[in-house]
Design a protein around this nucleic acid. Sequence first.
RNA 1: GCCGCCGUGGCUCAGUGGUAGAGCACACCCUUGGUAAGGGUGAGGUCGAGGGUUCGAUUCUCUCCGGCGGCACCA
Length: 639
Amino acid sequence: MNIILKDGSTRTLNQGATGLDLATAISKSLLKDALVMRVDGALLDLTHPLHDGAQVEIITRSHPAALDVIRHDVAHLLAEAAKELYGDDLQITIGPAIDNGFYYDFARKTPFTPEDLEKLEKRMAEIVDRDEPITREVWDRDNAVAFFKSIGEHYKAEIINDLPAGEPISLYRQGNFIDLCRGPHAPSTKKVGKAFKLLKLAGAYWRGDSKNAMLQRVYGTAWADDTQLKDYLFKLEEAEKRDHRKLGKEMDLFHMQEEAAGSVFWHPKGWTIYQTLKKYMRQKLEKAEYVEVNTPELVDRKLWEASGHWEKFGQNMFTVQAEEGRTLAIKPMNCPCHVQIFKQGSKSYRDLPLRMGEFGSCHRNEPSGAMHGLMRVRRFVQDDAHIFCTEDQITSETKSFCSLLLGIYKDFGFNDVIVKFSDRPEVRAGTDAVWDKAEESLKKAVGEAGLAYTLNPGEGAFYGPKLEFVLRDAIGRDWQCGTLQVDFVLPERLDASYIAEDGQKHRPVMLHRAIFGSIERFIGVLIEHYAGRFPLWLAPVQTVITTVTGDADAYAQQVFEKLKNAGIRTEMDLRNEKISYKIREHSLAKVPYIIVLGKQEAENGTVVLRMLGRQDQLTLSLGEGIDRLQKEAQSPGHE
RNA sequence: GCCGCCGUGGCUCAGUGGUAGAGCACACCCUUGGUAAGGGUGAGGUCGAGGGUUCGAUUCUCUCCGGCGGCACCA
């Protein structure tokens, strides 16, 4: 029979030949590196028989498609090792490949310990050395269920029972270990290699449902070779160094404490960043013709009942008992209040689109386990705004919002932005007809804005579909920050209207939108993105003036006053310490410019600018120095 | 909220069934030194909170609170 290879050439093989036979026929080195193969577009085991006319690509370990196979293989190594070590007390469940690695969920009464991870890892390496052949078998469904039940693997039996009828039940065997699995897998455990590492233990619900039993999940990473593994582990270390919780403490930006779990105590330096960002955003919004408002934080539950929040999200709202049994809720979002402002006086179509922004303080009672530094808090401020517009204006408003957002992200060096489109969730307000309309308008608008998007089914807000804007930071991690949500429901529920050209009352559409998302979270992202080394315009302390000896103190005082008057955020360090000591300290504090002054500078009226992390320095006249700093300290897009 | 781990001076961490240590930071003194740690002395902790076991608990145990890693959640 004839096999067509990737380069278009053909090979003639005997009837019934497998991928292994093909690889053997091509070259020894290919056979050595081959893991699986792609036949007519589908990944298969190399042991799978080929058919005449098949298009075949052998996937070697360096192939991009190999990583998932390797990770899946390693998950099986882990399961085999776990069965061998803890078999009496342990059931296997599922173990897929994920980004950068894999996990395996086990049901076991005894909790795993970190020492268990070491033991498991060792055993996995032994299994690789054993070079156990990995073979595929197709079983009859009932036999498979009975088999897994007989060996005490009830989770596996349940999975098989739930597989759609007609789906072949394939089992993979390696050594004494047998697992239900779709495959494909490498031909033997030796081929999987040892570029893996077990990383952490965690709990995870069976089938991802919090009503189900809690399983023990073991996470690991796996790669094609040791270099890739090392690179990844290095990257993890890098990410840890950038952790905003660690840097926030080191740089004295903010702190949290248990008396206010989930809320931030902003220190002067952190608050400077916060205010700078807010000021920057205000400028941008003003230019984009938004108006800014401010609304109450305590609002009667009646309004939340009317808006639908009480029913859908009441559990996450903090409430306060006011006099006479009146219940107030601390606002979890600003939209109902904005509708109240919109409703004051009568609105004409001429008033639309009305873009209403607020840096409103919101509280949400997040579950205790959800909190995470600045990234997930109970009290935060959004750069929130609601655009009241007509249906016809959805497209143009979405387009201009997208361009505003992309421009702003660019100012922070976020040039990679992914857009996700989330459509109707199961729990929702509004009729299907309204949802059809909302989803359709939003899709059209994104298309016209020229943005590609991926679909995020069922993830929309309860009142409407949404766009989520995900940015990629300096070390390649994704953060969801911006959002735009189309809402036909809230104006209806809260009875907002405007008078259209026909003289009749019409419902406006609301677009809920944010660019930073929560300012708290955005600062967290920025700290990690910049690794604490903020650009000058954001740096809480822009320069520190420090002297070589006390002789220059008087001159330093002059420079300090001038810089302050020029609006530069400056600190002075006249301590009786060696200059290298002071430079080290301020460098570690990530101050962008250290200004070193000594006798020479005092005599010549100059300043020496030392940029963070650089050895070379700039000697300028005081005037030039101030000009330079002032220019660089302006926020992007400043006029 | 769920599973596991953790909670010791301002910070990072060690340690023990007989009420505690290190480094850095801090204070004072000496040192006036030109680009990433000069030296000395000193002060500082009811060992997360509350019960229990014990002659005695920071240490063992339970409950609670908070943090960390995930899961679930995320308007």
